[in-house]
């Protein structure tokens, strides 16, 4: 009787997993082995790993995703640190989360208004006597906007792990003669490593395929794997190749997960 009930509670979870996790991934993997004539083939993988275009695109995607993640950390960590020390920190963190309530596309268009040739930023520049700059469609503007969009997702886990640190650790470190800098680098940062790692996991993967931003802000001068997936599904109707790129993205996600997880385990066992 009891066991039956447990099975019942378990079914929604299993069904969910089967329908929305396992089935789509299985379908992507299945499609990746077919060419445009629906014949079974390994050619898609062969093409991906032997074509200079796709390999440069992968390198580009990883490089941009790395830069976006890096900038997101550089901005988020100090911000989380400051917010966690503030009096009304719950309110401040709410303000950080607020932009995620706004649709991504709207935010992208808002940035077009800010960065365009006659936009607000250039108006400000001219006020200080700096000539108007072409800011849209540059690598810098793409990374800026992408980092801006990812920052809330980076701040939250870091902030949570910061607030989890008991004050006694910091006091202990001061009592033992550590400077403020030493407390930060030897105590606080190592203890918030899990937060930083989950931030990286949440930010890095979506950054690999930001095709909407690379078009609107990057003017398609930044080509990432997402651009290629979109093209294969919508223009050439080569679902096989599109799926192959999808599989590569899934595998890179697994790699990032493994890289950011193993160290934590090792520390626990030592």
């Amino acid at each position: 009787m009891k066991r039956n009930y447990r099975g019942l509670f378990f079914t929604p979870y299993v069904l969910w997993l089967a329908m929305f996790v396992i089935a789509p991934v299985a379908l992507i993997i299945y499609y990746s082995f077919f060419n445009i004539h629906h014949h079974f083939t390994f050619a898609n993988y062969q093409e991906f790993f032997s074509s200079g275009t796709y390999l440069t695109m992968t390198a580009n995607s990883v490089l941009y995703a790395f830069l976006i993640t890096l900038f997101a950390i550089l901005i988020s960590y100090p911000m989380a640190l400051v917010i966690s020390k503030l009096k009304h920190r719950d309110l401040w963190i709410l303000l950080v989360i607020l932009p995620t309530w706004i649709n991504l596309l709207l935010k992208a268009y808002a940035f077009i208004g800010l960065l365009s040739h006659d936009g607000l930023v250039n108006d400000l520049f001219q006020f200080f006597g700096i000539p108007a700059q072409h800011m849209l469609f540059t690598d810098a503007s793409f990374i800026l906007v992408a980092a801006y969009i990812q920052i809330p997702f980076m701040i939250l886990p870091i902030y949570n792990s910061l607030t989890d640190i008991s004050d006694s650790y910091i006091r202990a470190s001061r009592d033992l003669g550590a400077t403020k800098w030493q407390t930060l680098t030897k105590v606080i940062i190592p203890m918030t490593m899990p937060g930083i790692k989950s931030g990286i996991q949440i930010v890095f993967i979506p950054s690999l395929s930001l095709f909407m931003l690379s078009r609107l802000i990057g003017g398609n001068k930044v080509i990432t794997l997402g651009t290629a997936v979109e093209e294969h599904f919508l223009t050439t109707m080569n679902w096989g190749m599109g799926s192959t790129i999808g599989v590569v993205l899934i595998i890179s996600m697994v790699i990032v997960m493994l890289l950011t997880n193993t160290k934590r385990k090792r520390r626990r066992t030592s």
Binding site: S116, D118, L136, F137, G219, N220
Partner: peptide
């Protein structure tokens, strides 16, 4: 010479003189 490659948004950019 290419500033950007885009779709519908070109209309907006050209109309604004970007």
């Amino acid at each position: 010479n290419v500033k950007a490659v885009g779709a519908d948004e070109i209309k907006m950019y050209m109309a604004e003189g970007e």
